[in-house]
Design a binder for these strands. Structure first.
Lengths: 222, 222
DNA sequence: TAGATTGTTAATCGATTAACAATC
DNA sequence: TAGATTGTTAATCGATTAACAATC
């Protein structure tokens, strides 16, 4: 029901939603077991996660798929948030063009860059403005979320400018940690962390394969 | 010392390394406290993480920076891994051009795509080949890591082909979960999960600001 | 020596998993 | 009714934090 949703659960909710939407299975109902199998999660975990946002599960049949999708969409997309992105390189363009965000009430409305060749152009229908106009536009549009896809040298100073202009959440894709005041949220994405985990898994699997086949290899999924 | 390193710790090690390398502070030594403050981590956590891979800490002064960097680099970059990338769109290009990976012994050696306009071209000195040649080249070069940056419709089938060709670890950036057999490692990156956490933080901070300033807002960093 | 810092052991916290009762 | 599935409560596991002894 209406428990407080843990961070771990919150991170899985978009995964369930995505899984439900992309599964091309005609049945009207879906059970926790089915979802768990598709995702490689534990079925009790799925059941508990779902129980935390809805009470739509029916013993014997599972969840009415349409209803579950609606509940998830409603929960995850409840807030409509416009964001701007700074640094329209390859990654910046990829994020600007990504359609999946709107599902979560999240919309990148403009890009900023210093490159004159980019200014005035559009990516996925969204204009790229000169970095000079960042503060003005953020204020005018009351933007509260900023995405940083810049080389690391410029990440911190840009974050400071964004915050100065009124941004209260920063999604940082630069390979450096950004420090922000206590009243600002920040999520530092870190490719290297993911890579380290993947490479270790690979190493462990290789070792298991070379060694006797006696050991079951426990797999961390992610 | 030589404890087994937990997943949580492993994910932080690249962050420490990056922080050490980018800090422009001349001192020869660095303490856990300093690192913790720079990253917004707990200082005991930093100390414990570092203790798990080295015993170079000296009471009163901290860690010899040069030595700590060397230990981290050695631990994280111990395995040299060549990888290929499938789907040379914006995100694919961004990853192919990203220089930070080589620090971890990780190197994208080639890209694959179906678009004739891309085939034969290069990104950051790495050639883009026709997807037809994927299996042959992976076998010939004994590639064990594959990166998928494709629209979600093609993600699973491509994963299957990669595995078929000998790949044993898959880094999936498509917004869908990929299923792999037990002897293959997989890391599904999920933008929506990160976004959900960030948006909730923002919401909580806004609520705190609007409400009385009596409550301290606890911040999840990431 | 005194003080700052490390590293370890114990306690707490959070998340997952197991066991089981409820229900359609 | 019987069986499959949900949802909850208790137990386990893992990670973080706190307390403290060791050391330069």
């Amino acid at each position: 029901m209406t428990t407080v949703i843990s961070k771990a659960t919150l991170q899985r909710l978009p995964i369930y939603l995505n899984c439900l939407k992309t599964a091309d299975d005609a049945s009207e109902y879906v059970s926790a077991t089915t979802l768990a199998n598709r995702l490689g999660f534990g079925e009790v975990q799925v059941r508990k996660d779902l129980a935390s946002i809805c009470d739509a599960g029916k013993p014997k049949v599972g969840y009415l798929k349409k209803e579950l999708v609606a509940v998830l969409e409603n929960y995850l997309g409840a807030d409509m948030n416009d964001a701007v992105l700074v640094g329209v390189g390859h990654l910046g363009k990829a994020l600007m063009a990504y359609k999946g965000f709107e599902e979560y009430g999240f919309k990148i409305v403009a890009g900023f860059d210093v490159d004159p060749a980019l200014i005035g152009r559009k990516v996925a229908g969204k204009e790229i403005f000169s970095a000079d106009r960042m503060e003005t536009l953020i204020r005018r549009l009351h933007i509260r979320i900023g995405i940083i896809t810049l080389p690391k040298e410029y990440a911190q100073e840009t974050a400071d400018k964004l915050i100065q202009a009124g941004v209260r959440a920063i999604w940082n894709f630069s390979p450096t940690y950004i420090m922000v005041p206590d009243n600002v949220a920040v999520k530092n994405e870190n490719m290297a962390s993911s890579l380290a985990v993947l490479v270790r898994q690979l190493k462990e699997l290789s070792a298991a394969e070379k060694g006797s086949a006696a050991h079951k290899n426990e797999k961390e999924r992610g």
